[in-house]
Amino acid sequence: MKNVMDYIEMKIPAKPEYVGVIRLTISGIASNMGYTYEQIEDIKIAVSEACTNAVQHAYPEGENGEVTVGFSIYEDKLETMVTDNGQSFNFKQTKEELGPYTESTTVDQLSEGGLGLYLIETLMDEVTVSNTSGVSVFMVKYLSEERENHDKATSDHETN
């Protein structure tokens, strides 16, 4: 087991204009760690989705809240935790209602929201969501190719 090498934590106001700031930060961290372009873009989407969920659902309109994002940097992986202290939601039920859509999906069944959590689960290697007080989304992306279970085979891997 490898120890955590570095930890970075950021707190942003629960407002949509700050999601892009988190994206810039995670992009820099992932780039430093040596992830490929494709992997960095996947991480950016997953972390943005978690922040978007927190910003949009955690606090009722007009209530100011905060979203905390923690990055644990390991030799072989990046762990990201996005957490708010707002309202929790029923994760299992929400998950069951999620995409992907299939060819038999009718136009009426298409939803304008709800794909965020599905994308997080698809783009990251491990995802855990807890909703004991507020919602925390914990996600892991591995650096080494053999630990990945998605279609990264085509992306060039940087030599160490």
Partner: peptide, 20 residues
């Protein structure tokens, strides 16, 4: 240069309206 589920939602909304 960047898009996530929020963008997909916008285009799904347009698609539904146009199809109707």
């Amino acid at each position: 240069s960047y898009m996530d589920s929020t963008g997909l939602g916008v285009f799904v909304g347009m698609f539904k309206q146009l199809t109707k």
